[in-house]
């Protein structure tokens, strides 16, 4: 029996085996991490809100200053207006007395209301308009 069969050379791994396959991604690292970006955004917003509240505080204090400036002047302005109103009212009562002197039992300057509470005049007491025979042209 002749042995003319060739010995088959089987494809085998190299001695020592194949080197390991690097299958994981090896991308260069880009930019800060998500947590860092989140923290940065939070920081920017916190600074912004801090400035907003500073601005609101300043505006509130400016409004307070303006309001108190007016409050301090109110008594003086009311006092002046009161004197003028009193003077005009007294003059109007005098004119009324003069105009109604022929009517018996007429009380000049009597309130039209049946009470003691002060009610300011709704219609301005104007000397010219109260003259007898006055005609507005």
């Amino acid at each position: 029996m002749s042995n003319n069969t060739t010995t088959a050379t089987q494809d085998l791994p190299p001695k020592g085996g194949y080197s390991t396959i690097h299958y994981e991604r090896r991308l260069p690292k880009k930019g800060p991490s998500g947590l860092a970006m989140f923290a940065m955004c939070g920081g920017i917003m916190a600074y912004g809100w801090y400035k907003v509240y500073k601005g609101l505080d300043e505006r509130r204090e400016l409004d307070r200053e303006n309001a108190w400036s007016r409050i301090h002047l109110i008594p003086m302005l009311i006092a002046e207006a009161d004197r003028d109103e009193y003077r005009r009212k007294a003059a109007a009562v005098e004119r009324e007395r003069e105009i109604m002197k022929d009517v018996p039992g007429w009380e000049a300057g009597k309130s039209v209301y049946n009470g003691k509470r002060y009610v300011p005049d709704v219609i301005a007491n104007v000397p010219l308009h109260q003259q007898p025979g006055f005609k507005k042209d």
Partner: peptide
């Protein structure tokens, strides 16, 4: 205004309390 308010505080408050009693102009002359 702020100096009128602080220096005249007594008079201003007195006047406003008086006005609070009665709004009639002749009450607080």
């Amino acid at each position: 205004s702020f100096f009128i308010g602080s220096v005249c505080q007594e008079y201003n408050e007195d006047f406003m309390l008086c006005k609070n009693e009665d709004r009639d102009p002749k009450h607080c002359l």
